[in-house]
Design a protein around this nucleic acid. Structure first.
Lengths: 148, 148
DNA sequence: ATTCTAGTTGCGAATCAGTCGCAACTTCAG
DNA sequence: CTGAAGTTGCGACTGATTCGCAACTAGAAT
């Protein structure tokens, strides 16, 4: 994730509290997994990691919590060009959107922030009179090491 | 789809032929459905429409043909922000990429071409030394009629 | 501290999109 | 017209995600 160091531990928990959402042991475990993730995690991986913190965490609770976090725009759901099956990946939503580039050969995911991307979103808001809630730009191709 | 009028009927079929790919009745039906589609179709809808042209078309043939077309970059696979379930949508790939905006209230999909989008892709190629094969920008939010 | 209730959970069954193995069938080059 | 390679239908299967429901709990009100 870009600039993870700008994140405060427990931030997600605090944000949920601020919105008056109930905290449970299970949610705490899941939030911690998402906050400390070093890469994009699929739901199944979040489940396994959360269970290491609290063995009681159930699959459906993970899905329900992800749903909750999505609804509150605290995580983004990614496809990462379906590099591996049809599942989704999740990441903490940060202040600024970024682009995901997936290398079709080595599978590496590269993240990139761009002023041009920001302008493009402004253009959509302005020229299409569209009020953006989420914007997801995913690119598939070959990274600098893999393009032949 | 933008500028459908620039498309020649039977174009997909011709392109497959040009690549030395075998043509079958089933594929003809599926290609026709995709070419004449007025909106983005999910695999199941493509199946039903293709079966009207040729009752023998099977679900797996639809999926296998979509896979083939994706491999040859003749269709793009979209999620359309998962407005309805987790399935995918398909559309004929045209010369120029475009952006998909999905209204979270009315469900309308708006397509938009943008020079800024083109520049952004160039920036990724240049600054990240990334060789783009597919780029998918999907935006969720509220369209001009639905933003309160 | 105790009570109460709306919100949350685990469970297991269900759903749903997409995949696969295989034998039968077609396409099309020669 | 023939044969090999490519394609198909079928039905079983997978893997991700959802759901109904009874039991449980967080946290506000007492």
């Amino acid at each position: 994730m870009p600039f993870p160091q700008t994140e405060i531990p427990g931030r997600l928990q605090a944000e949920l509290a601020a919105r008056g959402i109930r905290m449970t042991e299970q949610r705490r475990a899941i939030l911690k997994v998402i906050e400390t993730a070093k890469k994009h995690l699929a739901a199944g991986q979040i489940l396994r990691k959360a269970q290491r913190l609290n063995a009681a965490v159930d699959r459906s609770t993970v899905y329900r919590t992800l749903e909750l976090l999505k609804r509150h725009r605290m995580v983004d759901e990614l496809d990462l060009m379906h590099m591996d099956g049809d599942g989704h990946y999740y990441e903490r939503k940060l202040a600024r959107d970024h682009i995901h580039m997936a290398c079709l050969r080595c599978g590496k995911i590269t993240e990139f922030m761009s002023e041009i991307f920001d302008s493009l979103k402004q253009q959509l808001e302005r020229d299409c009179r569209f009020s953006i809630v989420v914007a997801r730009l995913e690119v598939g191709g070959y990274c600098s090491e893999c393009r032949h």
